[in-house]
C-alpha cells in the first residue's frame, strides 16, 4: 500500500467514493430515461428536440401541482398524490407534445433544420409559460415514502434506490414494446423507411405524433421520479437537456443500446466528478468531448455506424 503515497492526488475517503457512486447511479437512472426519450424521437423521426428539457421541467412542475392538489382535496398520504402524479404528468406532457407535433413539426414536414429552430421556439414558450403560471420559486415535493438503507458509512435514502429500480423497469418495458409488440414493429418500420411504411398502410403521421408524445412522456416520468430529490423549478430543464444530448451523441444518434451505455457512463462519472471535484469542469470536459465525438466519430463511441 506504500506505493499510494506517490499518487499525484489523495485518494478520496471510501465513504465519499461510495456516496459518489450512489449519487451517480441515481443520476444515471433518471438520465437514461430522459435520454431514451430524446433518442427515440431522433431515431424514429430524425428530429432533434431542443425542447426536450422543457418537457422534463413540465413533468416536475405538474408533479408539484398534482401532489399539492391531491393532498389538499383528500388529505391522503404523500404516496397517493405521488402515484397520481406518476400517471397524470406523463399523460398531460405527452398530450402537449403530440399537440406540438401536430401544430408545428408536421407542418414543417420534419425538415431537420427548421424543426430545430421551431423546438428552440417551443423551449422558450414552454419555459416562459411555466414562469408565468408556476412562478420563479423552486418548490419541493414530499417523497412518497421515507426509509433509510444503512451502508457501512452512512444511512442512504431508500427512495433514491427505488428510483433506480423504477427507471430500470421502465426502460425494460420500453425495450419490450419496441422489440416484441406490433406497435414497436410499426415504429421500427417507420424508422427504417418512412415512405415504404406509408405505402404499406402504416399511419406515419400518427406514429410520429405517438413517438413524440412517448419521448416527452419518458422525460416527464424521469422528472416526477427526481422531484422529491430535486425541487421543481421553471429553469430546471437546461441541465437534463445538455446531459441527454451528451448521452445520445456519445451513444450514437438513434442507437438505444448506445444511449443506455452512455447514460450509465456519463451519470456515474458526473456523480463521481461532481462529488469529488469541480462540477463546472466536468461539464466543460463533457461538452468538448461531445463536440469532438461529433467531429471525428459521428457514429458515437458505443454505437454502430448509423445511416
Amino acid at each position: 500500500m506504500d506505493i499510494l503515497q506517490y499518487l499525484p492526488f489523495d485518494l478520496p475517503h471510501p465513504a465519499l467514493l461510495l456516496a459518489g457512486v450512489l449519487e451517480g447511479t441515481v443520476l444515471a437512472a433518471v438520465l437514461a430515461l430522459t435520454a431514451l426519450g430524446l433518442s427515440l424521437v431522433f431515431g424514429i423521426m430524425r428530429v432533434v428536440n431542443v425542447a426536450h428539457g422543457e418537457f422534463y421541467m413540465l413533468g416536475a412542475v405538474l408533479a408539484w401541482f398534482v401532489t399539492t392538489w391531491v393532498a389538499s382535496v383528500t388529505g391522503g398520504p404523500p404516496w397517493l398524490g405521488f402515484a397520481v402524479a406518476l400517471v397524470v404528468a406523463p399523460v398531460v406532457v405527452g398530450a402537449i407534445a403530440a399537440a406540438a407535433d401536430w401544430l408545428v413539426l408536421k407542418r414543417l414536414d420534419y425538415d431537420p433544420e427548421a424543426t430545430i429552430v421551431a423546438t428552440i421556439g417551443l423551449l422558450y414558450i414552454i419555459q416562459q409559460l411555466a414562469l408565468t403560471f408556476y412562478g420563479p420559486d423552486a418548490r419541493p415535493v414530499v417523497a412518497p415514502f421515507d426509509f433509510r438503507v444503512q451502508t457501512p458509512y452512512f444511512g442512504y435514502s431508500g427512495y433514491k434506490l427505488v428510483v433506480v429500480g423504477a427507471a430500470i423497469v421502465l426502460m425494460l418495458a420500453v425495450w419490450l414494446v419496441l422489440t416484441r409488440t406490433r406497435i414497436g414493429l410499426v415504429m421500427r418500420a417507420t424508422q427504417y423507411d418512412r415512405e415504404t411504411a406509408q405505402a404499406f398502410g402504416i399511419p406515419v403521421d400518427t406514429v410520429y405524433a405517438g413517438v413524440f408524445a412517448l419521448g416527452a412522456g419518458l422525460a416527464a416520468i424521469g422528472a416526477v421520479l427526481i422531484v422529491p430529490i430535486q425541487q421543481a423549478h421553471y429553469l430546471m430543464g437546461g441541465d437534463p437537456l445538455l446531459l441527454s444530448f451528451i448521452v445520445v451523441i456519445l451513444g450514437g444518434l438513434g442507437s438505444l443500446k448506445g444511449t443506455l451505455v452512455a447514460a450509465v457512463f456519463i451519470g456515474l462519472s458526473d456523480g463521481l466528478i461532481s462529488t469529488l471535484y469541480e462540477p463546472t469542469l466536468a461539464k466543460i470536459l463533457a461538452t468538448l468531448l461531445v463536440a469532438m465525438v461529433l467531429v471525428f466519430r459521428p457514429q458515437g463511441l458505443f454505437g454502430a455506424r448509423a445511416a
Binding site: 408545428v104 429552430v117 421551431a118 428552440i120 421556439g121 417551443l122 423551449l123 422558450y124 414558450i125 414552454i126 419555459q127 416562459q128 409559460l129 414562469l131 408565468t132 403560471f133 408556476y134 412562478g135 420563479p136 421553471y234
Partner: peptide, 15 residues
C-alpha cells in the same frame, strides 16, 4: 411571472 416573460415573444416569433 408574465410581466417578465419577454422570452415568450422570442419563442413565439421563432415558431
Amino acid at each position: 411571472g408574465l410581466a417578465s416573460a419577454w422570452l415568450l415573444m422570442v419563442g413565439l416569433a421563432l415558431v
